[in-house]
Design a binder for these strands. Sequence first.
DNA 1: CTAAATACCTGATGGC
DNA 2: TGCCATCAGGTATTTA
Length: 270
Amino acid sequence: MPELPEVETTRRGIEPHLVGHRVTRLAVHEPRLRWPIPEAVRSLENATVASVTRRAKYLLVTVPAGSALFHLGMSGSLRLCTDGAARRKHDHVEMTLSSGGILRFHDPRRFGCLLWQPTGDGVHPLLARLGPEPLSDEFDGEILFRAARGRRIAIKTLIMNAAVVVGVGNIYASEALFAAGVRPGRAAARVTRAESGRIAQAIKTVLARSIEMGGTTLRDFVDSDGEPGYFAQSLAVYGRAGEPCGVCASPVRQRVLAQRSTFWCPTCQR
DNA sequence: CTAAATACCTGATGGC
DNA sequence: TGCCATCAGGTATTTA
């Protein structure tokens, strides 16, 4: 399940292999992703990649005519194959580059997407209503506190809302709230300004640390399977129901909030 | 406007 | 060994 750190690590990994290189061939083997892959992505062919950027969990591969917009969904991965390995099952799209490498979009569950945004056509609708990037200065405790005014939903549900802040997935939501000492089920409106500050800071710290780890753990995803599994050893509460909290040894608790498994320490979090 | 539920999909896992 | 049921999960969309 690619969360923001995995998406950013993927971006950093593929960027040097794409920018400045020409797409010599685009092969769409399975257009039925979350939305059908539009014909317009053919504009990539014979174009030279200008940049590879990220917005929330979307990756944008930009050429002069526009941007290919990838989302990895829950099971997607982008890996660069330079070793001539054969296409595997669920490799839905292949971008062959002038360097000889092939960028392969692999997504067994097909929750991902590949869309097209023409140059000069404004911001894609999927990106238009997104909140600030969690690692930017634009996102802080104050903006979180204000977003929480009058909201009865759980604070965890609020920080997972992309209109409030992007890139906080189910795993890191629990992790950040543990780091901030706030219980995930607390009503958003009952979180204080000071706690909002700690939560915002925790989101930044947890994500940044994970990106750093991705830099080492995922470094060689080129020619590898690109699916490193999770850094489970670094998760404090996620997936650890019943296990002793690493700080106070209380058993970690689990419940479902807004259809999502949620984990917390009843002692360290209030 | 908010909040909750739903849909999309396949692989892994557990029970029998 | 096989088969069925359950679960996981990002997020746009639908419903209340």
